[in-house]
Design a binder for these strands. Structure first.
Lengths: 248, 248
DNA sequence: CGAAGGCTTTGATGTAAATCAAGATCAGGA
DNA sequence: TCCTGATCTTGATTTACATCAAAGCCTTCG
């Protein structure tokens, strides 16, 4: 089984601490498809909508490059981001005909799409696919629950610090280096998108960014470029439970 | 395959609108186990802790009767509920050694447990198990995302109305009748548990319950027994997006 | 170059929910 | 029966964040 071996070698390209998942997107995509003809690529520009909630969705997909968001909207326009899709993340649901969320490209984006019917067939005939998808979905569920704690119980400052930590970790992972000491990266989100992620207004996001800057927790160069001189300090500000796993 | 047929008959016992899932708990449990010796039942009293976050967890389980909660806690004691486990719901993660959340019985509870190692083996040898588990996990992820919208963007009054709607629907499902017109049920949660679910304080929960009562949206008999004279009215108060699926 | 339109910051003010503080209600046990 | 403690309600006050408003900063496009 050289194909199988190949697969495992690919997966050792790195493990993402944010979502606890292998991040080699191409590999993921190729593994899931197998059959060339059911898979195709689509590109989107930053800001473009991939699909609207309620639209017919005859494909499932995974992110190859770029960042996409899932958002829900109330009738009066209040918006909440409910998913942040990074390379290798999966979107769409086998066995559902319409999209449940708005999917938007926040950066230029390439997605690898699979026609739904043949993908569903493959799920049945190829057990490995369902098992892998389960693993990914469980990771997303854990991330969603962490996010719920943030939304329900953290202060604005803690929310911002948490988000910066998440982005910093993701970025460090893509560059294959641990987020210790000084970290630097570009924010992939506008202030409004950050607000939609965190359940805040864009003004509060802006104010808290300024406050963290004033207090030396972060350095800002322009509006988007962030440097974190002391990652542990940032994590303190995020107020996270740090004892998980060490008490039993 | 009479065993297989049996299974499908069982699953037609009802579909839960809250989590879009078959609710026949016994059936679920028996299907997942197959081998008698890897499965056992555990009972808990209301208020008892099933497992603490970080504890070693050498089993996975599903709820047979009663209600359990998953909660996360920050160092300073702020608590957020991140999961509400109803009969047939699954808890635990194949491939993880320790619990990620505190699991607590809010009512008297019976769980059907499976030793983890043989369960993991079964996941590999029996494709159907992984597929079923994927389906359930995707449902939970959808519920978590709905919950994120609630936590991030809804007012206290909307949060309470949403929670009452969720409980009413669950309860109606268990009784196999649609939640239209007048509905009546007992709250399975204390005010504090409701607050932990909703990201509020117990005082705010109490005040908003009183307000909904004053406005005739709900009737209260004692602290726990709730009657909803007009379910549509309650859903209006919940402020949910109602156009989902009808615009594309 | 200068106007136009996104983003972003910052300030002034308002308000929903938290916090602090009594009491009320109820169940169980002596 | 009356305590005792848990749970819940209600009131007074504070506060974190939202809202409203204005101005600053880039980019780009005429």
């Amino acid at each position: 089984m050289p194909m199988q071996d190949m697969h495992h070698v690919h997966h050792e390209c790195g493990d993402c601490p944010i979502r606890h998942r292998a991040v080699c997107a191409r590999c993921e995509a190729d593994e899931l498809a197998r059959l060339e003809q059911i898979k195709y690529y689509r590109s989107f520009q930053a800001g473009q909508t991939v699909i609207w909630s309620g639209d017919r969705m005859d494909f499932v997909a995974s992110v190859v490059t770029g960042i996409a968001t899932l958002t829900q909207t109330l009738e009066d326009g209040r918006r909440q981001m409910v998913g942040l899709l990074l390379p290798s993340d999966f979107v769409g649901r086998p066995g559902r005909a319409t999209a449940a969320y708005d999917v938007t490209a926040t950066t230029d984006l390439v997605m690898c799409c699979f026609r739904k019917k043949p993908f569903e067939d493959m799920m049945i005939t190829t057990p490995h696919v369902a098992q892998r998808l389960l693993e990914m979905t469980l990771d997303e569920l854990d991330a969603a629950r962490e996010w719920m704690l943030l939304l329900g119980r953290k202060t604005a400052r803690e929310k911002i610090a948490s988000l910066l930590g998440i982005i910093a970790r993701r970025d460090a992972t893509l560059k294959l280096k641990a987020p210790k000491g000084a970290v630097t990266f570009d924010l992939p989100l506008t202030r409004e998108e950050m607000a939609d992620y965190l359940g805040l207004t864009l003004e509060t996001v802006s104010r808290q960014m300024s406050a963290l800057k004033r207090d030396g927790v972060i350095l800002l160069e322009g509006k988007r470029h962030v440097t974190i001189p002391d990652f542990d300090r940032l994590m303190e500000e995020a107020g996270d439970d740090s004892d998980g796993g060490m008490l039993g």
